[in-house]
Design a protein around this nucleic acid. Structure first.
Length: 179
DNA sequence: CCCTGATTCGC
DNA sequence: GCGAATCAGG
């Protein structure tokens, strides 16, 4: 290799753009590029001015909620906040922020993106594991998803989407090659 | 504890 | 310009 990869060559920048707009997470992109951390990716993304991805219109929503101050690093910049335009047509539909069922049990085979790798029985189900039921609860082969759940939620990222949204199609693989 | 992106600031 | 540290949040 001529380049260790620690520099933002045009190719790497383009790949970054592609992957970012493609919806991959910063860490995924970092893993893909190699020799960079997710922070580096995020930093670059912001510098390129393509943060926020291709979201409809989320101008001030989360941006305004962002820390106006508090870097606990070294107070220097007053961090002036420009007037935020309220969004106009973000109709994310306040549909249901609650599970489609309090006690899910008879879900059909949801989809194919489910990682079969970590399915577990109730015996092996731990606190940090996704409780998404798979199969017939009355049958012995009943299993739970078992993937790492979002802290505070009973489901993994994937199933949380399915559970909390009527339709959430976001295909992303977990292909992080760590260490 | 795992992860996400956002931000700040020393380099 | 770069990215680690930090933050807020799921």
């Amino acid at each position: 290799m001529i380049d260790a990869g620690a520099t933002w060559t045009d190719e790497r920048v383009e790949l970054l753009k592609k992957l970012w707009t493609d919806g991959l997470s910063a860490s995924q992109i970092a893993a893909e590029l190699g020799n960079v951390t997710r922070n580096a990716v995020i930093g670059k993304v912001h510098r390129l001015g393509l943060s926020g991805r291709a979201k409809d219109a989320r101008p001030a929503a989360s941006a305004a909620a962002a820390r106006p101050r508090k870097a606990t690093r070294a107070p220097s910049a007053p961090a002036p906040l420009p007037p935020q335009p309220h969004n106009n047509n973000v109709v994310i539909a306040p549909i249901a922020l609650q599970p489609v069922a309090a006690e899910p049990q008879v879900y059909v085979e949801d989809d194919l993106a489910v990682p079969v790798s970590e399915r577990v029985t109730i015996m092996d189900l731990r606190e940090s594991m996704c409780r998404w039921p798979m199969g017939d609860p009355t049958k012995p082969e009943f299993r739970f998803c078992g993937a790492r759940s979002i802290t505070g939620l009973p489901y993994c990222t994937h199933h949380a989407r399915v559970a909390y949204q009527p339709v959430a199609d976001r295909k992303r693989d977990r292909k992080l090659a760590r260490a």
